[in-house]
Design a protein around this nucleic acid. Sequence first.
DNA 1: GCCAACGTTGGC
DNA 2: GCCAACGTTGGC
Length: 166
Amino acid sequence: MRSWLFKTEPKDFSLQDLQDAPDQTTGWDGVRNYQARNRIRDEVQEGDRVLIYHSRGKNPSIVGEARVVSAPYPDPTQFQPQHPGFDPRSSEDMPRWFQVDVRYVSSYAEPLPLARMRQYPEFADLELVIRPRLSIQQITDRQYQQILSLCEPELSVPGGLVSALF
DNA sequence: GCCAACGTTGGC
DNA sequence: GCCAACGTTGGC
């Protein structure tokens, strides 16, 4: 299982919105960047872990977790002329944009702000730090453990995984 | 296929 | 809301 970080603007769609959605599941539509699209289409797999990141807010942060619960499939909004995600270059037999379904897993006890991550040298190679605009980001197992130890401190080993790793 | 113009993103 | 960085478009 891989870990990913999906970015979203909470005023458009937040982790709370995911929690409130039917079956706590939604199609992650709206990816309109080719590199992010390639990852959704070619690399993201059912069962993968997704960290949800709220961008553009007052304090942009990793706020919780979701899970990929479908294979990739064409983003239906690209075919809807009234939708902001409409792409006239797409057709049903030549779809350009893809999405997966994600299901809510948890909200972290302590959301992890980007500003805080920047303070740790261990996160210096995080894509969020290097390429902040990419909306679908890869997270290594080690980075995931480090993030989790900061976001769910009471779940960490005694003495703190943070101190063990950092 | 270069690159200038333009549009979008997102931290601050 | 500003603006720098980045991604996309399209004329040549």
